[in-house]
Design a protein around this nucleic acid. Structure first.
Length: 229
DNA sequence: GCGACAG
DNA sequence: ATCTTGTCGC
């Protein structure tokens, strides 16, 4: 099991990403046999500070009905600032804490951010997948790197996201007349498998259900509408 | 040096 | 990410 310190300087974090990026595995995933899909997200209290309270949550849905099987949340503090390209050093520790409290065992994890569509090909989806040794997929609402052609206005339509001549992800449309989402490989999956799984996690909104429900959950936690265990 | 920049 | 109500459109 891979493990490393989190109290790093931004410069050290960048070096660590370059080193860990070499360990990411891109391979087909047997999507048809995926039963439990985990979605995770973070919610911060107002005013971004170094010691801001943060709520991290994981929701586990069961395919193909996308039924909620489990959800777990934790309250802690962020110990790393938000720096584009280093998001995972801010959000992963809280998410790993929540993950450790799961009683179910998800087959795949969908992270709220990029996977390989990252300047060093190591977004938060790759980071979490590698540390948890889990198939993982990145689903982001906007692009960090790369470009793509216009995506046809049809559910399921997608266009490759290219960065420095390399296909690093896909702009995928889950709903008509709204912006597409960005799907990229995290760990132990390939792009086609990732796209297929995300499509199977489609609800009626722009974002896939795991991501959407995790978002709603952590926001409810922050507002005190739902108690922590 | 000038922009771009996940959440 | 967060601060925030109503409003236009499918």
């Amino acid at each position: 099991m891979i493990q490393h310190a989190w109290n790093l300087t931004p410069q050290e974090a960048v070096q660590l990403q370059k080193k860990l990026a070499e360990k990411v595995r891109v391979e087909p995933l047997d999507v048809e046999n995926v039963r439990l899909v985990a979605g995770c997200d973070i919610s911060f209290s107002a005013h971004a500070s170094a010691e801001a309270p943060v709520f991290a949550g994981i929701v586990v849905l069961e395919r193909p009905q996308l039924t909620l099987k489990e959800r777990v949340g934790v309250r802690t503090v962020a110990s790393f600032p938000y720096i584009p390209g280093l998001l995972s050093f801010r959000e992963s520790p809280p998410l790993l804490e929540a993950w450790a409290r799961l009683s179910t065992h998800p087959d795949v994890l969908i992270a709220d951010g990029q996977g390989l569509a990252h300047p060093r090909r190591f977004g938060i989806a790759c980071h979490l997948g590698l540390l948890l040794n889990m198939p993982s997929i990145g689903v982001a609402k906007s692009l960090l790197v790369g470009h793509h052609e216009a995506v046809p206005n049809d559910v399921g339509a997608w266009q490759p996201v290219v960065d420095r001549g390399e296909v690093v992800g896909a702009a995928l449309r889950l709903k008509q007349n709204v912006a597409p989402i960005y799907v990229s490989v995290g760990h132990r999956v390939d792009l086609m498998s990732a796209i297929r799984l995300v499509l199977q996690c489609r609800g009626l909104t722009r974002l896939p259900e795991p991501t959407r429900q995790a978002h709603l959950y952590v926001n409810a936690l922050r507002r005190g509408e739902i108690p922590l265990d």
